Amino acid sequence: NITNLCPFDEVFNATRFASVYAWNRKRISNCVADYSVLYNLAPFFTFKCYGVSPTKLNDLCFTNVYADSFVIRGDEVRQIAPGQTGNIADYNYKLPDDFTGCVIAWNSNKLDSKVSGNYNYLYRLFRKSNLKPFERDISTEIYQAGNKPCNGVAGFNCYFPLRSYSFRPTYGVGHQPYRVVVLSFELLHAPATVCGPKKST
């Protein structure tokens, strides 16, 4: 009989979030998941669920729940959905087409922007091929755009693959930082360890 609440607040209220290319994953298990708490945590810009209804979450049980978190800019949030393409979905964080879970995003301009520009958040701009779903690539190998090998040196047709967002508070919403948490629900042929409040007794 599990009584402890799932530590969603640790994920959502973390002081620092990860850069999207090096997104963070927390496995959540053996706890009571009260998803209604999430609705009250922040004024969400996005709370979209796929393959599951957000209002039914509190009635369900899962084997595992994974919470992935990272920062992107406002106009990239739409890429965090099944079947999307674009720089983020292709080279940084890719959801599977049959994704079961929820994408939660909110504006973090007050936390993640600086007047002089916050350069701490990076994204991958160049990659030889698209990522597979939930693949994480943290390599910093020089990207070869031409025929000549780069031998690890940046220059003509040889690019450092990561680029930094420079978040400034005066930017338009599309270029402001957004914190994203992706909850993916895993149903294996194994005992369910993460249940809503109704199912945990």
Rank of each mutant, 00 (worst) to 15 (best):
K110E: 09
R25F: 02
E141R: 10
A18V: 09
P133I: 04
G155Y: 04
C61K: 10
T193N: 14
S166P: 03
I104S: 06
A67S: 05
D34K: 08
S29I: 09
Y171E: 00
Y39T: 14
G117Q: 03
Q176F: 01
D98L: 08
N1F: 10
N40I: 07
Y35E: 09
E186G: 10
T85E: 07
F185A: 06
L95V: 12
C49D: 00
N107F: 01
Y119L: 07
V11F: 08
E186R: 10
T201I: 14
A190M: 13
C6M: 06
P197L: 15
F134A: 09
V182D: 00
C49H: 03
S166E: 00
Y119Q: 11
A14Q: 14
A145C: 05
C6S: 06
L162Y: 04
Q79C: 04
G51L: 05
C150P: 00
R27G: 08
Y159D: 00
Y121A: 09
D34L: 06
N157T: 02
L60V: 11
Y178F: 15
L122Q: 14
L57C: 06
I28C: 07
N40P: 10
S164A: 11
Y159P: 01
E141T: 13
V11T: 06
T193C: 10
R168H: 03
D112G: 02
I138S: 10
T63A: 12
P197G: 14
S200W: 15
Y159W: 05
N118K: 04
Y159L: 00
G146D: 04
K110D: 10
E135K: 05
C195G: 08
G174F: 05
E10A: 11
K198L: 14
Q176N: 03
K148A: 13
A190W: 10
L122H: 10
K94C: 04
F70T: 01
Y93H: 02
I28D: 01
D97S: 12
D98F: 09
S184A: 10
P149Y: 08
G101N: 01
T63E: 13
S36P: 07
D34C: 09
D59Y: 12
P191F: 09
F70K: 02
E10G: 09
F44Q: 15
R73A: 07
F167G: 01
L162V: 12
D59F: 10
